[in-house]
Amino acid sequence: MTIIQPLLSIRGLTVQFGGLTALNSLDLTILPNQIFALVGPNGAGKTTALNCISGFVQPNAGSIEFNGIDILRKGCSARVRIGISRTFQSGQLFKSHTVLENLLIAQHSAMKADLFTGLLPFGPARSEEQRARANAMEILDMLGLTAYANIYAGMLPFGVQKITGVARALAAKPKLLLLDEPAAGVPHEDAMALAQNLREWRDHFQVTMLLIEHNIPFVQAISEHVCALDYGEKLAEGTPQDVLKNPAVLEAYLGRDDTQKEDADDNSHHS
């Protein structure tokens, strides 16, 4: 039996906002090319976990290793450079830019043009620009967005905005793609198609996906491994079938009113 080196390894991750514990000693292990779903009701700590990985939140304790490297002290830009990129629940596209430009901005860390090469209409900055454009167009083509390349992101219909968010994150050439509620607000049939597509893109771009999600049918359709959180603690982990039938998970989802914990989740958005 061979041991596969995990892509992301989280140990004892703890985050506190004021007196509130958003995450309590969380352990996660994500394998290369896995589609890993983090589920749980509002306030469970999913968003906080994602923000810790992408670098928006500094945890109070714990370690995050990516490809065997400790990334806890690295800033957002260093994490993009070593291969972690993310989408946002509310899209947060660069609205005054075209879809193509959104994908170019996503490649910011990979590009080198500085003030002086940027001033000139020729030279290294331009050839680098050409390569970035080609990369962006390839991704747009794969995701079926070519027709939208020159449309301003602020003018896109809702569904296209969601896919553009994924395209933008892919443009950064990540090894680990963090998806923040990719199916939120998406109707059921589309969510199923989206799950199918995301799996396809995972294979094509050889990328590992970590998603946080509410939509249980979607999680069932897409994920290979699920971890359920509640009150910042792990409830269950395993295959989607096992975890989503786990009585504790069902209780957390159905047995309580979600609204009590909105506050905790709100706090986890601040950084």
Binding site: S77, A78, S85, K95, H108
Partner: peptide, 12 residues
Amino acid sequence: DDEAAAESFGVN
């Protein structure tokens, strides 16, 4: 357009 998104793609 969006400070947080820009930061997440490595814009300092």
